[in-house]
């Protein structure tokens, strides 16, 4: 997709390389830092298949899934934000702003509430995906009919609010405080106590989501000129729309099913990356995917390092970290897009 050296902006090698380096460092930190306080030497021994079996269990059963999920979910959110902003030609677009994350969370809550999640392990991701699809489909229909981004954002807020109301209803009617607590924790977003099963659940969904979203970089570039022009450049917008819709619903649904709703990553990451690119939506896609993975994994390390009484939830930290960074960039770069 980066088919020309940028006329301005960072060379592609750095644009991919720096976020990759950050992602690797964050992943290593996430692997070696945790409440068990295992020395790095012991961790290395365990990773190479030797050492204390308990340490090995902690690393392989607890920390490694957490690292993998941080990278996967972060990548999905970064790619989702970048491609939605490109597709809708709107720097405010993001899965959580448009209600997809909330809707997926509602799907997850429904699965938990009615005990479907216990009945079958696939019920939770499936419902999350279906709910995300149900939230995004009308928005995409609306986007096809008007060039104005405002109607879409308003509709997104309506969908997000409706999903939020559904979640509140579930909390309101929840049979006992424990059920309410479990629902709440999905909404705050977390990667704590995840098992390898969670990875196997999320990875295929996110892989499908990423593949579908990264496929259409060129169509997003054409959409820079609006829908009519994109079509006269040979873009089959109906197919692009279907790929985006399924990619986002499956990817975000799969991500939310294992991590809960984590906001802001998809909004902020493309904005952090874009000033270093030539501003084509396609050149923001891959760096955003990698930077999203790095950011979420780093935030998940921060969750463990900040000393609090109750364990901090990841979604809370991404919001606290993300918003100031976002505002700083808004002020510094008067034009971000």
């Amino acid at each position: 997709m980066l088919h020309m050296p940028p006329a301005r902006g960072t060379p592609p090698v750095l644009l991919i390389g720096l976020p990759s380096l950050a992602a690797i460092l964050a992943a290593l930190a996430s692997l070696f830092i945790g409440p068990a306080g295992i020395p790095v030497a012991d961790s290395l021994a365990a990773l190479s298949g030797h050492g204390d079996p308990i340490v090995r269990a902690i690393l392989f059963e607890l920390r490694l899934p957490r690292v993998a999920l941080g990278l996967l979910v972060g990548a999905m959110l970064g790619a989702g934000g970048a491609s939605l902003q490109g597709y809708l030609r709107n720097p405010l677009a993001e899965p959580s702003v448009l209600g997809a994350s909330n809707a997926a969370a509602l799907g997850a809550v429904v699965a938990l509430y009615f005990g479907l999640a216990q009945a079958h392990p696939m019920a939770l991701p499936l419902l999350a995906i279906l709910a995300a699809l149900a939230a995004l489909a009308p928005l995409f229909g609306l986007a096809g009919r008007s060039e104005s981004p405002l109607g879409l954002i308003l509709a997104g807020i309506a969908v997000a609010t409706l999903a939020g109301a559904g979640i509140s209803l579930a909390l309101n009617l929840s049979p006992n405080p424990f059920a309410a607590m479990e629902i709440m924790s999905w909404l705050l977003g977390s990667l704590e106590d995840r098992t390898p099963q969670h990875v196997w659940l999320a990875a295929p969904c996110i892989a499908v989501g990423l593949a579908l979203l990264l496929w259409d970089g060129r169509a997003l570039d054409a959409l820079t000129l609006g829908e009519d022009s994109a079509r006269t450049l040979g873009i089959d917008l109906r197919r692009v729309r279907v790929r985006m819709l399924i990619g986002l619903a499956v990817g975000v649904g799969g991500a939310v099913a294992v991590s809960g709703a984590i906001g802001f990553v998809g909004l902020i990451v493309p904005h952090l990356v874009r000033p270093f690119t030539d501003r084509r939506p396609s050149s923001v896609l891959i760096p955003s995917t990698i930077a999203g993975a790095a950011l979420l994994t780093a935030a998940d390390v921060a969750v463990r390092l900040i000393p609090t009484n109750a364990p901090l939830k990841l979604g809370v930290v991404t919001a606290f970290l993300g918003v100031p960074v976002f505002v700083f960039h808004l002020v510094r770069e008067r034009r971000l897009w």
Partner: peptide, 27 residues
């Protein structure tokens, strides 16, 4: 090829990048 009325540009591409979009049907 189509030159629409009041062509909008949604992202601040450089002129060269913008003109290059015209090659998309050939790629």
């Amino acid at each position: 090829a189509y030159l629409p009325q009041g062509q909008t540009l949604h992202w601040p591409l450089s002129v060269e990048r913008l003109v290059a979009l015209g090659r998309m049907p050939h790629l």
